[in-house]
Amino acid sequence: MSDDDAEPDVNISGGSAGGGVEASFDPETAGTRAEAVVDRLGELYWQKAYGGQDGFECLVRTILSQNTSDVASQPAHDALVERYGPVEGLATHLDAAPHDELAETISAAGLYNQKAESIHRAAAWVLESFGSTAEFDAFVRDGDPGEVRDTLLEVKGVGPKTADCVLLFAGGQGGVFPVDTHVHRIYRRMGIAPPDADHEGVREVLERDVPAEKCGFGHTATIQFGREYCSARKPACLDDPDACPLADVCDQVGVYPESGEVEDPSDA
């Protein structure tokens, strides 16, 4: 991996400054197709063990990233922290922030009224349930992963991907493979997960077949691969089979180079 392949800062992981440490692995030991793909992605991009982010800021950041790109959510996150930071008092300031003001601040992320409501709820919940963001951070970092996940999912506006990102990037929990739209598409397209699997179904396959220490960078590297090669409408293999570095391990479910058509794997 070269310096040019360093993890981008415009990413829910926070890039090189987002916490976590470099990891290493031996691709020759891969025991499943999913692990082999993650190993290849690690060689293409980066290997990293995550953790270390502030729990509440990570929760807010992930809410901002829902249904939008990192390119759109990053400016919203930066504007929010600039107006309502520092992190230590963020929950208190967000809990007290007028809805219209908060929505305007995060407007770059899209769905800003809905996300402002979710952030308000999250801030009030953290303060009421834990008393401070420091106590919430300790719960995410030191609590039982299953309990942490279930607790987060009780908060309206927090779905499985958001809960898993908090567990991974703030809690540093191994064995957590968040499933966003890229991960959902790519592993069904490759034929690793069933073509009709929902997000939770894909997560179950990946967390079963990818070793715990590889799930974190498997998630982030898959997203980067989706942006660069395996997009929803025009994957690289559509025009040139040799253009994709993972073509030899992909079943191309729903991709038809002969006709130039692409469809969701569940419809293939």
Rank of each mutant, 00 (worst) to 15 (best):
E7D: 09
D9C: 03
G18N: 06
D26I: 10
E35F: 01
V38C: 10
V38R: 02
E43W: 03
L44P: 00
G51E: 02
C58V: 02
N67A: 15
D70T: 11
A72V: 10
A72P: 08
P75M: 08
H77Y: 15
L80T: 11
E82H: 11
A108V: 10
A109V: 02
G110V: 07
G110D: 07
N113R: 14
K115C: 11
W125G: 00
V126C: 05
L127I: 04
E128Q: 11
E128H: 06
D142F: 04
G143A: 10
P145W: 02
R149W: 07
T151G: 07
V158C: 03
P160M: 02
K161P: 00
L167T: 00
A170W: 01
A170G: 05
G172Y: 00
F177N: 02
D180S: 09
D180M: 13
R185K: 09
M190Y: 12
P194G: 10
D198I: 00
E204Y: 03
V205I: 11
V210L: 00
V210C: 01
V210H: 01
P211R: 05
A212G: 02
G216K: 00
G218D: 01
F225K: 02
G226S: 09
G226K: 03
Y229I: 07
A232C: 05
K234A: 14
P235Q: 06
L238F: 15
L238S: 12
D240T: 12
D240G: 08
D240S: 10
L246T: 11
C250W: 00
C250R: 00
E258K: 15
E258F: 05
D264F: 12
